[in-house]
Write a protein that binds this DNA or RNA. Structure first.
Lengths: 222, 222
DNA sequence: GCCTGCTTTTACACTTTCTTAACGCGCTTA
DNA sequence: TAAGCGCGTTAAGAAAGTGTAAAAGCAGGC
């Protein structure tokens, strides 16, 4: 049975969510406030978190950041309409998906299933981009079956790019996912690591393309 | 080259799909029945599956479930029914997207492209205006699924217009949102960027209309 | 201590993007 | 008709961002 944690300040919403989730066989725990939510998450170790962005006190984004410092649990964001900017920020900070209030229970459950399945498959899966292969489990990379010797930072960087192969990854996203929790701003250093990666990947592998002022994209050939 | 598997009992539909897919460079194999479809999937290892829900014999949902027991291949559902319950059921059982017959070939191909890429990417926050799509998370714009290469300023400008599609956005609003915090008045430069945007969007996309003395409006066609 | 490998900083040439300025066109108004 | 205004368009210099190499910090192991 899966455990779900609801973090939402509105009691009515919590009740609704609890009903829906329990009818589906989830074991449910709740928190009405961000700080409590983090404690609950640490204590109960839920399999999925439903997080409202419009929390009083600690911001929903802040909760997400703190959570991501030590947990990889799938997070589904609940937000009201017209919060595009905040939604983007949430996704950039490691949220897995979002639903807009008001939402249908069917849609909610479907998205929950998807992100839980995705998280599960992602753990054991390797990422393949053309001749490039990343083994997330063993932290190994290879090009045409030839092992690539990458430093930890380079691997993390390439992983972020490969997860979104063919799409732009903004510098913000890279910073947050590779240098999470760092005070200093190594956006200078990013260029250096990109340079190293390009050298190691060489001509045989997918190219890392720069989108000036935005970020980078790993070409996936198609 | 990608391999596609079609599972549909109607020969006419299979022929149509095969034509469309092959013209797009897919290698195609077919099955007229659910059990055969699973065998084909196991044997050919397709990169994407097009599955009709209205199969005789084994139900389409059932096929999907069996397939998901061992495969993670992206699945696009084809169905004549437009019922929420079916749609949700398919998504819950691991389908990646859903097209209702009759469908346009452009739409079909677009969705195929999307689900093939979505395996490792996250849900995105998007603004859609007719054929124009802005992906806020990845800072990508596309027109009829064709990527548009926009500079950061152009993207921000188009975003403001698209958020208010169909409505007038005053020059002041644009200034504040795109050139936030600037004292100087680059309303001169605004004209230049509008010009660039119009060129890049061309005839295929929504038009940027000037309202003399007021501002600009992005036509949403509908 | 000293070495070694990784990360970050620094510096500068180079590319892309942004801003500025100029000019032509069409419309309105005197 | 001519002057004024706002807009579209183009070109060129200014500014910002990027690629690259080399050197300087920073750990952990010997």
């Amino acid at each position: 049975m899966s455990k779900a944690l609801i973090i939402d300040d509105e009691q009515q919403m919590r009740r609704l969510l609890r009903m829906v989730l329990e009818s589906r066989g989830y074991e449910v725990c709740e928190a009405a406030e961000g700080q409590l939510g983090l404690q609950e998450a640490a204590f109960h170790r839920p399999d999925v978190v439903l997080l409202d962005l419009g929390l009083p006190g600690m911001n929903g984004i802040e909760v997400l950041k703190r959570l991501r410092e030590w947990s990889d649990v799938p997070v589904l964001i609940l937000s009201v309409r017209d919060q595009e900017t905040i939604k983007v920020e949430a996704l950039e900070n490691g949220a897995d998906d979002y639903v807009t209030k008001p939402f249908g229970t069917a849609e909610l459950l479907a998205r929950l299933t998807v992100i839980q399945r995705r998280r599960f498959t992602r753990q054991s899966a390797e990422i393949i981009v053309g001749p490039l292969k990343l083994d997330l489990l063993h932290h190994e990379a290879s090009l045409d079956e030839v092992p690539l010797k990458l430093t930890p930072t380079e691997f993390a960087l390439l992983k972020v790019l490969a997860e979104h192969a063919g799409r732009i990854v903004t510098q913000n996203q890279i910073m947050k996912q590779v240098w999470a929790g760092q005070t200093s701003d190594p956006s200078e250093g990013l260029r250096v690591h990109i340079n190293h990666l390009r050298k190691k990947i060489g001509e045989a592998g997918p190219r890392i393309v720069n989108e000036p002022g935005i970020g980078y994209r790993l070409e996936d050939g198609s």
